[in-house]
Computed example of a mutant assay.
Amino acid sequence: MESVPQEITSLVGREVYSNNGVFVGEVEDIRLDLDQEVVTGLALGTVNHDLFDSRIEDSKGVIIPYRWVRAVGDIVLVNDIVERLRDPETEEAPA
């Protein structure tokens, strides 16, 4: 069964979740390598501040590598590596 190609712009506006179900952000733009004609990253806005606040301070969003994308459908699923970006010093110790 062949998949039907879709416009890359159809990713804009989709919500991004880790494969563990944690909200990561919403796609605002796409990063392209025009020489090789490939997508290299997703620019996310409306990010999950629990994941990124210690890293983005005054930024309005983040760019995640497209190689982290596991699946694209109604939402975009990415590897759980984004969850590992949390600052371990700010995480609560288990009770």
Rank of each mutant, 00 (worst) to 15 (best):
V72C: 14
D58H: 08
Y66W: 11
E83N: 14
L34T: 09
Y17R: 10
L44C: 12
L42H: 00
S54W: 03
L85F: 13
R70A: 09
E2G: 13
V72F: 10
W68H: 04
E89F: 10
Y66S: 08
Q36S: 10
G45S: 06
L42Y: 01
Q36K: 09
I81W: 10
S18N: 05
R84T: 10
G61I: 10
V4T: 09
I75M: 11
L32A: 08
G73H: 08
F52S: 05
G45C: 05
D33S: 00
S3D: 04
G21F: 11
L11V: 06
R86Q: 15
V22E: 15
E89R: 03
D50H: 11
G21M: 11
V47D: 01
E7D: 09
E15Y: 04
E28C: 10
I63L: 03
Q36L: 14
T46I: 03
N20R: 13
E91I: 10
P88S: 05
G41T: 11
D29A: 15
I75V: 11
D50R: 15
I30Y: 05
V82N: 03
E83T: 02
E2Q: 06
S59K: 15
V72H: 14
L34H: 08
I8L: 04
E2I: 04
D35H: 01
G21I: 13
R70D: 10
E2D: 14
D80Y: 11
T90Q: 14
F23R: 11
N79S: 07
G41Y: 03
P5K: 09
E37Y: 00
I30P: 02
E26G: 03
E26R: 15
G61K: 11
V39N: 00
V22T: 12
P65N: 12
E91Y: 08
S3F: 05
E37P: 00
L44R: 05
D58F: 15
E2W: 02
Y66N: 07
V76F: 02
E57L: 05
A43C: 12
F52M: 12
D53G: 07
K60A: 14
D29S: 15
A71W: 06
I64P: 00
L11N: 12
D74E: 11
G41C: 08
V16E: 12
P65F: 01
A95F: 07
S10R: 03
L42K: 00
I56V: 14
R55P: 00
E89C: 03
A71M: 04
L85P: 02
M1A: 13
E57G: 10
L34Y: 06
S59G: 13
P5F: 04
T40K: 02
I75R: 10
W68G: 01
V78F: 05
N20D: 14
W68E: 08
T40L: 01
W68I: 01
A43F: 14
V62Y: 03
V76I: 13
T40N: 01
W68Y: 14
L11T: 05
R31C: 08
N48Q: 06
Y17M: 06
D74W: 02
N79K: 03
A93I: 13
D29P: 01
E92T: 11
E15D: 13
